[in-house]
Simulated assay, not measured.
Amino acid sequence: MSPKSTPVETALGPRRAARQPVRHRGGAWKVAYADFVTALMALFIVLWLMNSSRQIQQAISAYFRDPKAYSRIVALASGHDEAAQGEMLMDRNNAQALKERIEQAILNQPELAELRDQVRISLTPEGLRIELMETEQGLFFESGRPEPSPKGQRMLALLAQQLGRLRNRLVIEGHTDARPYRFGGITGYTNWELSVDRANAARRFMQDHGVDPGQVTQVRGFADRRLLEPAAPNDSRNRRVSLVVEYDQPAAAEPEPQPRIPVLR
């Protein structure tokens, strides 16, 4: 101990050192660390996407292209948009817009977008016609069976939510190709029964998923009488279920009463 230093100075250090202002460390390192963690998270997301299925990649892409529209379609497909039911009326002026909306709704769902080549939507004199065309192996309906397949159920559920928002009348048709029903000789079941049963099965499923029961006015079965491809009667595309949204027809005006002509006797 120095003879000139006091016990207090020896324990606490020189007094002038205690009077120096305390310097706090800066927070710049926090910003750099946050940037590093963000970049690392982005890397993990990219690696996950690279190893995900194509359906997941398409779904994420659709969401970032238009988040509001994607959320709307998901709500419609899951049946959570009850407020919109029955609020629209299709006529010849807005039928094209409805056609484009349904086409976009199909494209926005990756598992249905893969089936778009088998869905034909067109405007006809009677209304908007949606054709669900089969493949050779069976797509929307299993081959020779009247029940919708899982893919057919998903497509019908989406269409039910879209068409259930309308007040227009709906006609459902069933069609087959020209090949006879393979088990018809044993049971007597023919393409006539198959076409009607498929149309009726589509009606029941759609009414369970958004279409009002009073909206369907006709269920038709045509067998092979109205081929989509007349030049190829055995083409699988002739096997189809058709949904026809009829144009709004104004109520017929009641005839004005005719003036009574007095009869002279």
Results as ranks from 00 to 15, higher is better:
N51M: 15
S53Q: 09
Y70E: 12
E111Y: 11
P3L: 11
D197A: 14
L132Y: 02
L264N: 12
E246T: 15
R23N: 10
E111I: 15
A202I: 03
Q207A: 03
L123Q: 08
D66L: 06
E131I: 11
A202K: 01
N238P: 06
P7D: 13
H24Y: 04
I73G: 02
Q96D: 09
I45N: 08
E254F: 04
G26P: 06
L158W: 01
K68Y: 08
S149D: 02
L76H: 03
F140C: 01
A231G: 08
R169A: 14
Q118C: 15
A113P: 04
I60Y: 04
R15P: 08
L159I: 00
Q104Y: 08
G26Y: 08
L156M: 07
A83W: 03
E254W: 07
L98G: 03
L163P: 03
Q137L: 10
L139Q: 01
Q85W: 01
V216I: 03
H80N: 07
A62M: 11
E134A: 05
M90Y: 04
F183I: 01
L47R: 10
L264G: 12
R129N: 05
P257D: 06
G188M: 14
L112K: 02
H209T: 10
A34T: 12
R65G: 09
S122N: 13
E173K: 04
A83P: 06
F141S: 01
P180R: 10
E246K: 05
A201N: 02
Y181P: 06
S149V: 05
A59Y: 05
V22Q: 05
K99R: 14
R265Y: 02
Q96T: 13
N191M: 07
P259I: 12
L159S: 00
D177Y: 05
V216D: 00
D212P: 05
L159K: 01
R167D: 13
M90W: 04
E229Q: 15
L128I: 15
P230S: 10
F183E: 01
G27Q: 12
A32I: 14
R116Y: 11
L98V: 04
P213E: 03
I106H: 00
M88P: 04
T190I: 11
T6I: 13
P14F: 15
A178Q: 05
A113W: 06
E111C: 14
H209D: 05
P150G: 05
S122P: 09
L12D: 08
Q118K: 13
V22T: 11
E256H: 10
I45M: 14
Y70F: 15
Y181I: 05
E256M: 11
